[in-house]
Amino acid sequence: MDESQQVQRALQLIANLSIDKASQVLSKSIKVGAKIELENVYVADISKATEAIMVSDEGDVVGAYVDLVGDMPFKFLFYVAAEDSLTLTDLMLRKELGTTKKFDIYVTSTVQELGNILASAVTNVFASDFQIKMRPSPPKVVHDYASTVFGEYIMEAAADLNEILMIESQFRVVRMNIKCRMFLLPTGDTQKTLASIVAAA
């Protein structure tokens, strides 16, 4: 197995544990089960990946960006369809569904806080399962087209690369047909660090 395949395998293991933990804390936060629908580690061509989102017409989303800083930096993104963020706000506040009707600071901060909690769950996996110290930065929230949100997310990593290694997952909130998407993107020297950890193992 060559080095890049080993790195991908290591990322797959990180993905399995992180996504599992993230779905648990998401369920706990909104008090409704969140099923993992997708879990994938892949190399994405930046043009094709962004084109696919444009074509899928995901519409408006609210997204939270978190930088995971530490021994192995990652960029984290959590987003949900804008309409569904209203429902998530009702769930977070334990209010009757349909109560939140407009996009206000509570709606954007719901996604902000879910991003914070999920990103922290991921860094918890790094710490407890891999002894890698990381911490999340304060989240930045954007309400915009899905393609715009995703494009800004990969911008830094895509500056010097045509293809980027990515962890992608999707959760479905049961009984409500709400899809939430979560991405992890290794940045900086993370791939090199992973390769040396795998080589030493």
């Binding site: 804390v25 936060s29 909690i117 990103a119 922290s120 769950a121 710490a127 911490r135």
Partner: peptide
Amino acid sequence: AIDQRDALMKAIRLGATDYIVKP
């Protein structure tokens, strides 16, 4: 949030009264 335990321990040592974990 769940994994800020280093910061949390520091806070307790500094004199924080208690802590609550999100969610």
